[in-house]
């Protein structure tokens, strides 16, 4: 390619630079809603209380208009023979862990989205279809989602599920903290259904306080760790347990929020679009300087 004059070059290069810089004003507003409100809600799960009746599973299916099995099937304990995961047919499942403890009763652990305070999925979502709401819920917007499944890759708890059998409009499926109910002071369907009060709904900071009180008052009953208080920056769902949480299938995770490193790299590279624009200018300058050296040789 031949450059006619330096002035022309500068004019065009300046225009290109300006148009890139013009886009720089928008990215700040380009992040999805990610609110960390002071009085966000949470649920405290006391796994030492849970009896594995699976009423929560049943209520959840009803609240989300998913097909429910016959009510009697809840008494069938054979489902506990395998460790189940939430999927597109069930947003929450209860698993049983038998460690041969003296009482002989297995420990039951309810699994669902943890509703992280710094959610990896919200950071990941290419279109901002996942948001962290005022009340602590991490919810998914079907109108935006393109089905790329990066949220599933990002989630440290392996929670979001995808409708692989759906050809036309597959959904990302996960617990939504019954956002329709909890938004207006209601209880999540699972909490409402629990007959033994293993699930306590409330403001997260109060639940944390209460949990530590439980631990302090009954050190023989509880492992001195509240899972979810600090894991990946904290989660809305908090778990008390008798043994180390890793015995009940909880992943060992650090305290750093999952999106920390990737977001700081991402924002470092694009700080006010300065690095890309500088790089553009640098290359342009280099091109300008070298062009005369080979003048006439060009095609």
């Amino acid at each position: 390619m031949a450059l006619k004059s330096r002035r022309e070059f500068l004019k065009a290069a300046g225009f290109a630079g300006a148009s890139i810089a013009g886009a720089a004003a928008t990215p700040a507003a380009a992040a999805p809603k990610n609110i960390l409100s002071e009085n966000r809600s949470g649920v405290l799960v006391d796994t030492t209380v849970c009896i594995g009746c699976r009423q929560c599973e049943y209520a959840c299916l009803g609240a989300h208009e998913l097909p429910q099995p016959p009510l009697q099937s809840l008494e069938d304990r054979s489902v506990f023979e395998t460790k189940r995961r939430p999927d597109h047919r069930a947003l929450t499942v209860v698993n049983a862990y038998d460690h041969g403890d003296e009482a002989g009763e297995p420990t039951h652990v309810k699994v669902q989205c943890m509703h992280c305070d710094r959610p990896a999925c919200v950071s990941a979502c290419i279109v901002g279809a996942l948001t962290k709401e005022e009340n602590g819920a991490v919810v998914w917007d079907s109108d935006k989602c393109i089905g790329c499944r990066y949220c599933m890759v990002a989630c440290p708890f392996q929670i979001p599920a995808f409708e692989y059998g759906e050809a036309l409009r597959p959904d990302i499926v996960k617990c939504d903290f019954c956002h329709d109910r909890t938004r207006d002071e209601g209880l999540p369907a699972c909490v409402e259904a629990c007959p033994v009060e293993a699930l306590t709904f409330g403001e997260r900071h109060e639940l944390v306080k209460a949990a530590h009180q439980h631990i302090d008052e009954h050190p023989e009953r509880y492992e001195a760790h509240l899972y979810g208080e600090h894991e990946v920056g904290g989660t809305s769902w908090l778990y008390l347990a008798e043994r180390p949480h890793s015995d009940y299938g909880f992943p060992r995770l650090g305290h750093a929020p999952a999106p920390g490193v990737s977001e700081s790299i991402q924002h470092g590279i694009f700080k006010y679009f300065i690095p890309p624009v500088l790089f553009y200018a640098l290359l342009g300058g280099f091109m300008w300087v070298t062009k005369d050296r080979h003048h006439g040789e060009d095609e």
Binding site: A31, S123, K144, Y150, I265, Q266
Partner: peptide
């Protein structure tokens, strides 16, 4: 969608 629905935090 990504052309109009932005998430500047997402590497993707």
């Amino acid at each position: 969608h990504p052309l109009f629905m932005w998430n500047g935090n997402s590497a993707l």
